[in-house]
Write a protein that binds this DNA or RNA. Structure first.
Length: 405
DNA sequence: GTTGAGCGTT
């Protein structure tokens, strides 16, 4: 029988740091250097001093055990503990039985949980034993990651996910020559912070737009947008270095794959080397100076501020108390819902006929009105819950009652 | 009705 003693020590930045962080101690009583540098980048030692009225520390470091790049790469891959706001954290080792709600409840002891999700097998419906959480405050995530967690009897790990590539860059088919990079930036900045726009010159009929928040990019993907009266289609940007020249479309003649066919993958451009170089210069050219603050507040819109130029967004008064636009993107900028809620909202927004968004309305007479929109479709089709627009409010408050907000 | 290191169906 092996006795496992889980102990922590409190480590602070300095004597004035009023918020020491508990770091786990190894079984042999030492603490891993990597454990410390993870939370205190650049730290090379621990000093035993009084922290407030707490005791001091009296531990020595041990080098990280094999497998890590501790040798020859001192400044290298320490585990990422820098949590960006609005970033999901992966939770590993969950019991099969744990539900999303229980996951959320557990982590709420550390701070406001703004998103929780457990991955389930699509066929069997059983948990895969891992999930994701997102905290309202990045600092909460940092603290959570250095703690040990026992959820319903199982030890779980919380990490910054490193598997999924950040799909923040979209391939934009913008076939019209009178769309400039500034147009693209202006248009897409209304959905979220745009960190980069690349529009080949001379015009090649496509562009790349990169968002600060990959979730925003994903929300916008696969749908038609209308910029300066021109349809524009969005897809994930293919990774660089793949077969180029796939796309032979030229800069003219938007043949309008139109409603319902936006899911095709024809015409994806890859980011080849040539573009990559151009992008680099473009990045500095555009600069970061006029990028907006990353704070949620600046990117959330109320209904009044959207007007009719943004068919994506709700053109109906918001049913929310805070007046935030009722479209999913805006709502999620305030408080991303649980996945179950998102799926339900998605079904309602997109209708029940499949997992594709409804096509934009048939109106092609340019700006100024009458665009179809997911919202319009939803309202005109009625809601699953049975009834008129009032269901929106009912939905929100229902979610609220369940703790999703 | 099973599993136990890992990394997110839309």
């Amino acid at each position: 029988m092996i006795e496992v003693k889980m102990e922590f020590i409190r480590v602070a930045e300095d004597q004035n740091d009023q918020e020491p962080i508990e770091l786990p101690v190894e079984d042999d009583g030492t603490i891993l250097l990597s454990t410390v540098t993870g939370q205190f980048p650049g730290a090379c030692g621990l000093k035993s001093e009084q922290i407030g009225d707490l005791g001091g520390v009296d531990h020595w470091f041990r080098e990280q055990e094999k497998g890590e790049e501790s040798s020859g790469n001192p400044a290298g891959k320490t585990r990422r503990l820098d949590v960006k706001k609005n970033q999901d954290l992966v939770v590993l080792g969950l019991p099969w039985k744990t539900t999303e709600e229980e996951l959320k409840t557990y982590f709420e002891q550390y701070g406001e949980v703004v998103f929780s999700e457990i991955k389930f097998d699509r066929l069997t419906g059983k948990s895969k034993g891992f999930g994701f959480v997102r905290f309202a405050e990045a600092e909460t995530g940092k603290q959570v990651m250095v703690k040990k967690h026992i959820i319903q009897g199982r030890t779980c790990e919380v990490k910054v996910p490193d598997s999924r590539p950040e799909r923040r860059k979209l391939f934009v088919r913008c076939l019209s020559k009178d769309i400039s990079d500034a147009d693209l930036k202006e248009y897409f900045s209304d959905y979220g912070d745009v960190t980069e726009v690349y529009l080949p010159s001379p015009h090649r009929g496509f562009a790349f737009v990169t968002f600060e928040d990959g979730d925003i990019a994903q929300e916008l993907k696969g749908r038609d947008h209308i910029i300066k009266g021109h349809h524009v289609q969005l897809n994930d940007a293919e990774p660089k270095g793949k077969n180029r020249n796939q796309w032979e479309g030229g800069a003219e003649g938007f043949t309008g794959s139109g409603p319902g066919s936006s899911g095709d993958r024809v015409g994806e451009a890859t980011e080849n080397t040539e573009i990559s170089e151009a992008e680099t210069s473009m990045t500095t050219e555009i600069g970061e100076a006029d990028l907006r603050d990353d704070s949620v507040e600046t990117t959330v819109r109320t209904w009044e501020t959207w007007g009719t130029n943004y068919p994506w967004h709700s053109r109906q008064p918001s049913t929310r108390p805070d007046g935030v636009c009722s479209c999913r993107v805006c709502r999620d900028r305030v408080a991303p819902a649980d996945t179950a809620t998102r799926r339900a909202e998605q079904r309602r927004d997109w209708g029940t006929s499949g997992n594709q968004p409804p096509a934009m309305g048939g109106n092609t007479d340019g700006l100024g009105g009458g665009y179809g929109s997911p919202h319009g479709m939803a309202w005109s089709q009625g809601n699953q819950a049975g009834g008129g627009a009032g269901d929106n409010a009912a939905g929100y408050f229902g979610n609220q009652a369940k703790g999703s907000w």
